[in-house]
C-alpha cells in the first residue's frame, strides 16, 4: 500500500537526514519501517538521466551543504580554525545530534558550543568551546533589540545627589564577558585576513556590544570588568563603585573611573540613568 502524505514526509525526511550513503539511508531502520527498500524505485520515479537514488541524493546533498553554509556564516572563526574537513565533520555530527527545529537558520548554532564541550576527543576543546560561545554571542547581539543611547543631556539632568543610588541601564545589545582565551583577537585576525594569533590560555575581560548597528568589543581591565558587570546587573552606582574600591589589587583612582565612564558612555553602552524613585 502506498504511504499517505504524513508517512511519505516522514520517510523522505528520514532519508535526507541519514548520515550514511544514499543506499544506506533508504535501507535505514527508520526509513524501511515506512517504505521497504524494494518499493523505493516505485515511490521515487527515475528520470531520463538519474535513477531514484540519484534523485533523492540531490536533496540529501543540499541538506548538509545548506546547514554547513549557515553555520560557517555564524561561526567563521571556528570554521577557520578547524579547516574545511574538520569543520564539515563537526557540522555533520552536530546536525545529526541537533537537527534544526526552528523556522530560521539563525538559531541553528544555538547548541553548538555545548555540543563541542560534550564531544569526546576533540583537540583544543576548551579553546573551541569558548570561540563558539563568543561567536554565538555575537550572533545574538547582532539581532538584539535596538535601544536608545544615553545622551550627555540626559546625564546633565541627573541631580548630583541622585548618582549614589542611580542605576545605569545598559543597551540590549551588550554583554560583559570573562574569557580564558583570546577569542576576540582570533576572530578579528580571521576577519581581516591576518596571520593566526596565538591561542594559548590567557584570562582577560571584555564588553561586547553593538553600536550604530555594528558589533564591537572593548578589552577591559579586571577592575573595569567588575564595575561594568555590576552596573549591567543593576547594582546602584555607589554600591558598584564601593565594590571595586574595596577589592584588593591595584587601587582605582578617580581619574581612571571618569575615564572608564566617559569611554563607556561615548561608546553607547548605556541607554538610561534610572533614578531610585523611577527605577
Amino acid at each position: 500500500m502506498a504511504p499517505d502524505l504524513g508517512n511519505t514526509q516522514k520517510w523522505m525526511q528520514a532519508v535526507i537526514l541519514h548520515p550514511g550513503s544514499d543506499r544506506q539511508a533508504v535501507a535505514s531502520a527508520e526509513a524501511r519501517k515506512i517504505v521497504p527498500p524494494s518499493r523505493f524505485p516505485g515511490l521515487i520515479r527515475p528520470s531520463r538521466t538519474l535513477d531514484s537514488f540519484d534523485r533523492i541524493g540531490i536533496y540529501r546533498g543540499m541538506y548538509l551543504a545548506r546547514l554547513q553554509e549557515a553555520l560557517e556564516a555564524d561561526f567563521p572563526g571556528l570554521a577557520h580554525f578547524l579547516g574545511p574537513k574538520r569543520f564539515s565533520d563537526l557540522v555533520r555530527g552536530y546536525v545529526d545530534r541537533y537537527p534544526s527545529g526552528s523556522y530560521t537558520l539563525n538559531r541553528l548554532g544555538d547548541r553548538l558550543p555545548e555540543f563541542i564541550r560534550s564531544s569526546p576527543g576533540m583537540v583544543r576543546k576548551d579553546f573551541l568551546y569558548e570561540l563558539a560561545r563568543f561567536e554565538l554571542l555575537m550572533s545574538r547581539l547582532f539581532d538584539a533589540e535596538e535601544s536608545p543611547v544615553l545622551t550627555p543631556e540626559a546625564i546633565a539632568e541627573v541631580p548630583p545627589e541622585c548618582w549614589e543610588t542611580a542605576r545605569l541601564k545598559p543597551v540590549a545589545a551588550l554583554s560583559v564577558q570573562e574569557l580564558r582565551y583570546p577569542v576576540g583577537a582570533y576572530l578579528e585576525a580571521v576577519r581581516q585576513g591576518k596571520p593566526r594569533p596565538a591561542t594559548r590560555r590567557k584570562n582577560h575581560w571584555a564588553v561586547v556590544y553593538r553600536s550604530q548597528y555594528a558589533l564591537r568589543w572593548l578589552d577591559l581591565s579586571r577592575p573595569a570588568y567588575r564595575l561594568l558587570k555590576a552596573l549591567v546587573n543593576g547594582v546602584p552606582l555607589g554600591e558598584a563603585l564601593s565594590g571595586v574600591l574595596r577589592r584588593g589589587g591595584q587601587p582605582v583612582g578617580e581619574v581612571q573611573l571618569f575615564s572608564w565612564f566617559r569611554g563607556w558612555v561615548t561608546e553607547g553602552l548605556f541607554q538610561a540613568v534610572e533614578l531610585e524613585d523611577t527605577a
Binding site: 499517505d4 502524505l5 514526509q9 535526507i16 537537527p99 534544526s100 537558520l105
Partner: peptide, 25 residues
Amino acid sequence: CWTGVSGINVHDLLPMPYTDESLRY
C-alpha cells in the same frame, strides 16, 4: 512545499506528492 515534519526543519523546499489527499489537505 513542505520543509519538515516531527518538529524538524530541513530548510529545503521539499516536493509534495500530487495526490487527492495532498490536495485536500
